[in-house]
Design a protein around this nucleic acid. Structure first.
Lengths: 163, 163
DNA sequence: TTCAAAATCACCCGAAAGTATGACCCCAAA
DNA sequence: TTTGGGGTCATACTTTCGGGTGATTTTGAA
């Protein structure tokens, strides 16, 4: 039951793009027709018209490509500060990171959590939905064996797996 | 030295693109002229011609966009080990503490928050009611000018007003 | 090519966190 | 003695968080 609703909503979400594109294309055709009639009044203005068409469709192509191309993955540079204590020599970090077996995305979410961002803000920052962040945080908590984000932050800072 | 060579090579690479683009554009214009003469022979084939132009330039636009956004951003995790003398655990920033004007109780709550405790757990630890903790945290957030406990923790650790 | 992990998104529900407001007590300073 | 800050607690409400579940798509490795 919920699967149907799920599919329907997803279908709508996808179609929004398609519908938008369709409408835009229709508008563009109207514009072209208008341009055509305008220029046809003039004499030997064909080249100008062709130029306009070429320009418009070049822009359209660029827009299309940019729209349909997936947003680039941001480069994540994690600078880890390894605090070296005088007495207790725990300069772990990488070992702990591997032990916890966190994925790249989960580590990103963890870092943003530690920066004090809400799930909503994290989702906006990473260009994904709120639900996705929830899923990430869940897996994060499971792997780190904690129950709250504050515990995750505390552990992460203590182990030095985030800055 | 290697930087110069690097820049030179990069410059050449870029210019190669520009030259390639120029040549392609020239070829494209020739193609268009040819198409124009071909179609002009026919009667009322304008739309077809315009369509061809539109298509070609749409493809051109897409190609341009894809070409110019080519560089694939790899996710690189840079591990920078910064050795810091361990004074963060000892010296508390007294000036910041006074500036924020936190009460004793509020500071206690803040510390326990940073330890990853829930409001419920904090209230149990301090032998007060949950509502009291909520009140404390509220005033805490006001004084620190934050909206969430995670932000308060982040700021407190950054300023060094808690361990 | 196939398979598993990762990443994405959805929906529901209960718990926790946070907001707003008001009240009472205590104590020290004006 | 009044006044104000700190501490306590309450009710009512909204928002966010987290758990559980299921699904599809992407991707990287075998």
């Amino acid at each position: 039951m919920s699967t149907m609703a799920n599919n329907a909503s997803r279908f709508l979400t996808r179609n929004k793009e398609v519908v938008l594109y369709g409408v835009s294309l229709a508008a563009l055709l109207l514009l072209l027709k208008w341009l055509e009639y305008r220029f046809m009044i003039l004499d030997h203005a064909m080249d100008l018209y062709i130029g306009a068409v070429a320009f418009i469709f070049t822009v359209l192509g660029i827009w299309l490509a940019l729209k349909l191309t997936k947003p680039k993955v941001q480069t994540v540079i994690v600078e880890k500060q390894v605090f070296v204590s005088n007495n207790s020599g725990f300069s772990i970090n990488q070992q702990e990171l591997e032990r916890l077996n966190l994925s790249k995305r989960e580590l990103e979410v963890l870092q943003l959590m530690a920066d004090g961002l809400s799930n909503q803000e994290i989702s906006a920052r990473l260009f994904v939905s709120l639900n996705t962040i929830k899923t990430h945080s869940q897996k994060l908590f499971e792997k780190m064996e904690v129950k709250r984000r504050t515990q995750a932050i505390e552990m992460a800072k203590r182990l030095g797996i985030i800055r």
